[in-house]
């Protein structure tokens, strides 16, 4: 029990009920040695942030297929910040038009992976960011 593992929350905020994508990503991240907490469907931003805080995760991944991404990402971000979790890496996937993705990324809300993104790319991006971060903290958080 002396190894620092990357902990990731995979959540489905809002009303869409399709979680095959979220489950696929969760499995890939597990296979990359990460500890993945899956929250299930229909979560509010408050619920997602609360789970992220209780589980002390490093990364929150949201799958949004409902079109409500422009509202949901900023709300999850502010709920996380309200719980002292502002440093959490926020990533997202789903049906998100490129211009929306650019806007959200430019405003620093999240790194987004659109349809067709290789799942390996998501895992590798998280690993790269986390290794930078852990190196900066002397290996500990």
């Amino acid at each position: 029990m002396t190894e620092r593992k990357i902990r990731v929350l995979v959540g489905k905020p809002g009303l869409d009920g399709h979680d095959r994508g979220a489950k696929t990503v969760a499995t890939v991240l597990r296979d990359h040695g990460m500890e993945v907490i899956y929250t299930g469907l229909h979560q509010t931003p408050e619920m997602i942030a609360e789970v992220a805080a209780q589980e002390d995760v490093d990364v929150v991944g949201l799958s949004i297929l409902s079109g409500a991404h422009m509202a949901l990402f900023p709300r999850v971000k502010s709920e996380l910040a309200a719980r002292g979790m502002g440093e959490v890496l926020l990533v997202g996937g789903g049906i998100i038009p490129p211009e929306d993705a650019e806007a959200l990324e430019a405003q620093g809300y999240a790194r987004l992976f659109g349809p067709g993104s290789p799942t390996e790319e998501i895992a590798e991006w998280i690993e790269a960011r986390m290794s930078e971060r852990l190196a900066g903290e002397g290996g500990r958080a």
Partner: peptide, 27 residues
């Protein structure tokens, strides 16, 4: 892989909004 999928919270979802309950998953 050394990774884990931690899904026990799903069956306790209603507790997330209760400040008298704290749930932690451990691999």
């Amino acid at each position: 892989s050394g990774g884990a999928l931690l899904g026990d919270r799903i069956r306790m979802e209603e507790r997330t909004s209760d400040s008298g309950v704290f749930i932690r998953s451990m691999a």
